[in-house]
Amino acid sequence: MILDIISAVLILLGGVLSLAAALGLLRFGDLLSRMHASAKPQILGLLMVAVAIAIQYPAWSTVTTLAIVISFQLVTIPVATHMVGRAGYRTKHLRRSMLYRDELAEAVDRAEAREAAWERRRGSGTDHNDG
């Protein structure tokens, strides 16, 4: 019984973290800030739920599958947030007013100027993208 209560407490904590993620999604005013809120508590919440399951069924089979789930999440969540962040930064989804200091803008401007020059030069020759 005590194990059940421990599991329930862990799941409750996972629920609290999920709620924190959702509230952050609601309250933060910027796409990048919302990404913080969505991705971070999710990891810890999942970890707690996985520990809760592992407590109840300490068999090797469940533990390995849970390890797989957690490590997949650990690996894929940063990649997904990075891609969303990069897309959001480069396109118009960014509120510059919310940034205190921005050290990336200059590098991105230069990269885009270079790509525009590339496109112009390539447009005079064979173009892969034309139908």
Binding site: R27, S33, A37, K40, P41, Y89, S97, L99, L104
Partner: peptide, 26 residues
Amino acid sequence: SLIIASVEVAWYAFRPRAVGAGSVIA
């Protein structure tokens, strides 16, 4: 760090004061 900082972000989400501006650092 994962535990400490998750609690911190959760605290930011719950507290009534709004969260401040962020910044992009290199």
